[in-house]
Amino acid sequence: MADTALRVSAASSADKRSGLQKLMQRKSTIAFLMTLPLIVLIFTLVAYPAGYALYLAMLNKAMTKFVWFKNFDFLFSRDTFWMVVWQSCLFAISAVVFKAFIGFVVAHLVNNIPGKKQRKWRGMLLVPWVIPAAMSTLSWLWLFDSSYSAFNWLLEPLGIGPIPWLGETGWARFCVILVNVWIGAPFFMIMYLAALKSVPEQLHEAAEIDGASWWQRIWYINLPMMRNIIAITALFSTILTFANFDIVRVLTRGDPLNTTHLFATWAFRLGIESGDIPLGAAVSLFMVPILAVGATIILRDINKRGSEV
């Protein structure tokens, strides 16, 4: 009897083992296991923080009570919130437009430099983008300093100034955008330069023979051929610019009177500096829907055109 029982149990364990083996050999299992590291990574770095932020945003200031959407209600009723919305849009849109424009022009200039010199220029022009932003912004901070501004020192003999670079709303916003453009334009330049190089030279020759001037060749050949890269770069940069933190933090800390705050810096001010973490989380969550809409529109457009050309 015992002998038979033993044999039966041995057989069933062998069955289980072969079942497990089969499961491990299935293609879908292998595929799942191979993507598992990515799934874990995305969950721990994206899904969990996002869910946690959502949870945080629905707590009271002391983080003891669940208050549902009261934090959002409170934000909607505050003028500063709407000012930050407006400032973030102004900052992101104007900075991206200038970066794109400067990047486009400089890419064309660099593209016309022959041979080895081009590499040198390309390297030099990338420097602002390569230096850590917090560090280069610190140098800009000194250039804008209220007492020792190098710009004011230069402008003084011309009878201009002294300009309160970071002390007045208009100038402060200008400075924040200027520094962002200075840091970000090289990225546009390098992307556009790559796109320009992928436009076949013969198209230019054909257009030249068709009677196109230099300007018309840019308008009718380069721009349409670069459209996808322009859109992708703009989208990418808009997201990064919209979520910018370091420049404003180092240069103005959101002052004067909160008029240079962006979502990220204001969330930091409310959440960390003022100790209202749920409110800070609520502010930072507002970036998500705005960026999602932009990303959807641009990506859909790219898909559509990608199938055309």
Binding site: E205, A206, I209, S213
Partner: peptide
Amino acid sequence: PKDRDIAMVFQNYALY
């Protein structure tokens, strides 16, 4: 080229 009043057909067509 644009003022020479010529037209050219390229080896790889060079269509836009």
